[in-house]
Design a protein around this nucleic acid. Structure first.
Lengths: 344, 344
DNA sequence: AATAGCGACTTTACCGGTTCAGCACGTGGC
DNA sequence: GCCACGTGCTGAACCGGTAAAGTCGCTATT
């Protein structure tokens, strides 16, 4: 690694080769007016010949835009690794960033406070030109912080949670309603839901929607809901306790807030000697490939997570460009019936 | 988002407040000698009062180190999301980076060529101070590129693959041998392996080790190996074709190269009416939480992926600091027997 | 007493771009 | 023939730091 000292080529070299000043090179590379076609061409040719590209660092320092967007994720790594959602989401974000040769700064944080600190230091230090905010909670401090700093952000979450920030969101309430209606249509009257982390805003939205839908559907129907931490273990525990009731008392259908927990639920059912879907129907959420790998395959509320990430990135560029705050719904998750749901 | 124009505070403000020159502030913040305790204290106090921290961008431009490390991953996003391995690995890397307030630049690329291009532009543009290289292939171009550029890197992979670069690796060959010996000790004589992507170096290492171990063990034993793309679907397909043979001909034990494929295999066995582990034993690799969520639970070759990532990051800092190339083995994956393996 | 040496800072020159005031030149109007 | 103006480009200042060379006062040496 004591290799070549790397022959750095700078704007000055390009300018010299093209026979112009570095100011001209700058103008050319920022597509600004004030240069003749001929000069512009000469500059680009010189740059190509020398294999030069403007240094993002210097550009940033000189006060123009920053080609990096930040994403801080606040969940234990153990869970993150398992949630197919995140990597898929990130890849969607990337797909748009790449087009604008923008990079993604990723950070796993351990607490919301740490995330707020990171927003501040990233922005103050001009490390990012904007940020993606996920996992909104009730009374989330981030909208205020972003506003105070003037940091361009897009919030992933329902507008009711994101305090006036530009948001991109899926209509969880409608999706929950659709899920419950589907199970009810199959004849289920005792429906349970294994929800995600109670502190997260979208979890409460789903919880409320679930409750209302079940109640509206039929006063006699019963609903249970359990909060978890999204982990498979928690999903297994929740399922076990739901299914431990007497046959006439226990739920005949369970909805899960992600697919990992649904997989765990499937295995708990097997372990307890219950057949899926004959004895109990299971419905997953997010619908990663995992849902098609189990036996039986898992019915799921599926949505295009990659596209979701892409939309978030596009929206962020809008915000950075100075667009007014707005609300950007993406398509509602759609029910994909497979082998784990059937009439009771 | 038209908020406060952000009152940037710079080294000059701190210097003024502490009554010194900005050079002195720089000395203080880089813990260099040449300042009295008293002055140093005054400077730090001033900085604290103003909430100032040095701008990484300016530091980078001024030619000192870059506090960013790069990681380009070249696999389809669809697969990445599913491999618990990656996020876990990333979180391990992060855990070390955070201590040095270093950031991780993550990029998903579509081809090895694109990755090489990225290495060059990252390094030329001083976007990263070093890089982590994963997924080595035969005749991988990256060692040469890194050498030519003088880019500090650490290669994740067996030294035989990483062309003299500093490497961090797990002893896959030994682990495969242990896995096979274990299955043989249980009494299995027809053992199959569902491997990963054939193009990857560590896949061939495992393939060779598997072959040799089985052959050495007992000339009469039979071994099958199938290459896949690591996806659950491919794992399912491979399992299906392995188990389609007549009862006396088909393998009684299958080793998988990751846990997703093992989960898929489990479901294929169920779908074909075979009991696990009575009719066929399954052994997973990587051992994420997923292995404990299935029914039966999956026996696995498990290793500390988080710790692996951390070691990689530590090693990278060593390389950046100028250490000579070296080989850093991390503990060999260890067999964790669970419910999916038993005598035939 | 002159000088060397050192500690504690300050000065100054970059790093690689962006930006803007200014300048030379050609053109059209009167 | 002179002036105003637009075009095309240059030069210098600046962004926020780092690093090497320079300054100054004081003690130790010869």
């Amino acid at each position: 690694m004591t290799a070549t000292p790397a022959p750095r080529v700078t704007i000055k070299d390009v300018a010299a080769r093209a026979g112009v000043s570095k100011g001209a090179v700058s103008l050319a590379f920022n597509r600004k007016p004030g240069l003749s076609e001929a000069t512009r061409d000469r500059i680009f040719r010189a740059a190509r010949e020398l294999g030069w590209a403007p240094s993002p660092t210097a550009r940033t320092l000189a006060g123009s835009r920053v080609d990096v967007v930040g994403l801080a994720v606040c969940r234990p790594a153990r869970l993150l690794g398992l949630e197919p959602f995140y990597m898929e989401f990130v890849s969607g974000v990337e797909s748009v960033l790449v087009e604008r040769s923008c990079a993604l700064l990723l950070r796993l944080v351990r607490s919301p406070d740490e995330e707020v600190g990171l927003m501040e230091s990233w922005w103050r230090g001009r490390q990012v030109g904007g940020s993606i905010l996920v996992d909104f909670r009730a009374d989330d401090p981030r909208p205020a912080v972003a506003g105070r700093l003037g940091l361009p952000v897009v919030a992933v979450g329902h507008p009711s949670l994101t305090g006036g920030l530009t948001s991109v969101w899926t209509d969880d309430a409608t999706a929950v309603t659709e899920a419950v209606r589907y199970l009810a249509a199959l004849g289920h009257r005792r429906i349970a839901r294994v929800g995600g982390a109670a502190a997260l805003g979208h979890t409460s939205i789903r919880t409320t929607a679930f409750d209302e839908t079940v109640r509206a559907l039929e006063p006699a129907a019963r609903a249970w809901q359990v909060a978890t931490d999204f982990s498979g273990d928690a999903g297994a525990r929740a399922t076990r306790s739901l299914l431990a009731a007497a046959p006439g008392e226990r739920p005949t259908a369970i909805v899960y807030d992600n697919d990992i927990m649904a997989v765990a639920g499937l295995s708990v059912a097997a372990e307890m000697g219950l057949r899926v879907p004959d004895d109990v129907s299971l419905l997953a959420w997010d619908d990663s490939q995992l849902c098609r790998l189990t036996h039986p395959t898992l019915s799921a509320m599926s949505h295009d997570v990659h596209g979701f990430g892409a939309e978030v990135a596009r929206t962020l560029f809008g915000v950075i460009a100075g667009e007014d705050p707005g609300s950007h719904p993406v398509p509602t998750p759609v029910l994909t019936p497979r082998g784990s749901t059937a009439p009771p």
